[in-house]
């Protein structure tokens, strides 16, 4: 245990990269999920097809392949190299955004038809109906599955070690293990605990948002919805 301090300080040097990838990835995921999810429900067939291709293409291939593709292939096609951490954010966002799009689509469709009709009867425009009436209600349904999705994304940041982003997994495997091989158990346990703490933070934030969103529509956060989200699982 005498090296615990060293382990902690070396691992924490990787924290900024892990956090950047996680937060950046989550931000991009939210944007892409909403855009692609609403596009899946668009009245225009062209828009629906484009969004469908994005969703199925990204869900149908491996995240590691997507990472290598953006890191090694895209530069050949576009002529410049992307900074590894941003390539990472891009892949994490693109990949999880495809899963998030289905969450958004499902949640929007789960809002009762009567709510659309109430909004139509008041003369609201299609955009106003979506933004003011439907989305605020759909968000309540989205939050529990998004919690799972964001934890998946946090876990996925570890693959950035493959393209030499010095995040915490790479710090453990490239810096600590070669120096303290007999203490591999302690090193990786510590690393796993750091991920656990980060995922608990994500869950705490999401639960808070669930309560806020549920209160806005006059409901308690439904334990059932969260459980269903856990059972359906996106990985």
């Amino acid at each position: 245990m005498e090296n615990l301090g060293t382990f902690l300080s070396v691992l924490s040097e990787g924290l900024p990269e892990t956090l950047t990838a996680t937060i950046g990835g989550i931000a991009l995921t939210i944007v892409l999920s909403l855009v692609a999810g609403l596009a899946l429900l668009s009245p225009s067939k062209t828009v629906r097809v484009i969004s469908r291709i994005y969703v199925e293409g990204l869900r149908g291939t491996s995240e590691v392949v997507q990472l290598f593709w953006i890191f090694f292939v895209l530069p050949v096609l576009v002529g410049f190299q992307i900074v590894p951490i941003w390539a990472g954010v891009l892949v994490l966002g693109l990949n999880h955004g495809a899963y998030g799009a289905e969450i958004v689509r499902g949640a929007v469709q789960s809002v009762p038809r009567a709510q659309y009709e109430g909004a139509i009867a008041l003369g609201l425009s299609p955009a106003q109906r979506m933004r003011r009436v439907i989305l605020p209600q759909a968000v309540v349904e989205m939050l529990p599955p998004f919690n799972n999705l964001f934890i998946q994304l946090l876990k996925s940041t570890a693959i950035l070690s493959f393209v030499s982003v010095n995040e915490i997994t790479r710090q453990a495997q490239q810096v600590l293990v070669p120096r303290f091989n007999p203490q591999a158990f302690e090193i990786f346990m510590l690393l796993l605990v750091i991920y656990l703490v980060l995922s608990l933070i994500i869950t705490a934030v999401m639960r808070f948002l669930e309560r806020v969103a549920a209160a806005r529509v006059g409901r308690r956060p439904s334990a059932e919805a969260r459980r269903q989200a856990a059972g359906a699982g996106v990985a």
Binding site: A114, Q115, G118, A121, L122, Q128, P136, R216
Partner: peptide, 28 residues
């Protein structure tokens, strides 16, 4: 020019009573 009241009310649960009443007058 046409208003409708539904059997199941169809109030918007994401807004207060005030929100339900001022939404369309302000936005439409």
């Amino acid at each position: 020019k046409i208003g409708m009241v539904f059997q199941q009310f169809n109030l918007f649960p994401n807004m207060t009573v005030r929100g339900n009443l001022i939404e369309a007058p302000t936005r439409v």
